[in-house]
Design a protein around this nucleic acid. Structure first.
Lengths: 154, 154
DNA sequence: TATTATTTGTCATAAAATGTCATATATTGG
DNA sequence: CCAATATATGACATTTTATGACAAATAATA
């Protein structure tokens, strides 16, 4: 199959005691073919970890460099974001080491859910993902959102 | 891994009785590869110490030379900033000695948090960092900032 | 079911951070 | 100016954490 150019799908994984997690091979394929390498930049985004292909992260950095936030809240947010950011590489077995700091701040311990979302990969602690997307919530979502996504003909 | 060109990430360190602190090796890598040496210029920036690669500090100096502050408040601030500035080097073990003056003015004693923020490194007394970025604060930050950072898809 | 690819567990090794002590340099008071 | 004290620097040992290698288990495919 031709490798897609976006990250999508969901899978369950385990985080071992050292903090290592496997990155699904289909995501590694996207990294290799679309981005040329397997480097990721991780940040804490609320209740989950966002893993950007490093090139995508650098694009974000350029955005903020050329157009820095002017208000103190924006500056504070950016300082926080940078403080949670870590570069990492995928090893020969297809794993990354999630730095301790990020595991702590998101409560990532043993079980996680890895999902693709457009140009980034997200790593969620299993319980938080499930809380966010319980069946009941998803049902309500569909009921209330149809007019915002006319292109889907919900 | 290819060395990044910005400082990012956060880690906890101890300041020993002599006032020495380790600079994370990933930051030393950025210093070596991007700036060519491991020299830093430290200044007090409110509740924390900012450690600029000396070349970055020199760029700031040029800015102020060609475009000095015209109002008395700006002049006063710059005088203060220069008064707190100290050059220092990283030793063979990857540590710096934080001058007593800077430790006193920021309340840096035993535990600290070292964070990367774009083109500079910041050294925060642990308690001050935590006060600034308590969970509740971060939660509020995320809730109120999403429209200002559309590129993150928060 | 057999074969292959992917994911995960475990151990060995390497690197980083830090505590401790010895020595050197600077500061202060007599 | 010299002695006494404080401060800074260097060297080394210990602990902690990250990385690499390999094998076992699981899942996907033919």
């Amino acid at each position: 199959m031709k490798t897609p150019t976006s990250f999508k799908g969901k899978s369950h994984h385990t985080v071992n005691e050292a903090g290592r997690v496997s990155i699904p091979s289909k995501f590694r394929d996207v990294l290799k073919t679309k981005y040329g390498d397997e480097s990721l930049t991780l940040v804490t985004l609320g209740s989950h970890i966002a893993a950007f292909p490093t090139k995508e992260w650098q694009k974000l950095e350029e955005t903020w460099e050329t157009n820095p936030p002017k208000d103190s809240k924006g500056k504070k947010f950016l300082r926080y974001l940078y403080s949670t950011a870590e570069d990492c590489t995928i090893d020969k077995q297809g794993r990354i080491l999630v730095p301790n700091m990020l595991r702590e701040s998101t409560g990532l311990n043993s079980e996680c859910v890895i999902v693709g979302h457009m140009n980034k990969i997200e790593i969620w602690p299993k319980d938080k993902w499930e809380k966010e997307f319980e069946d009941i919530n998803v049902k309500n979502l569909f009921d209330s959102i149809s007019e915002e996504f006319p292109e889907l003909n919900l």
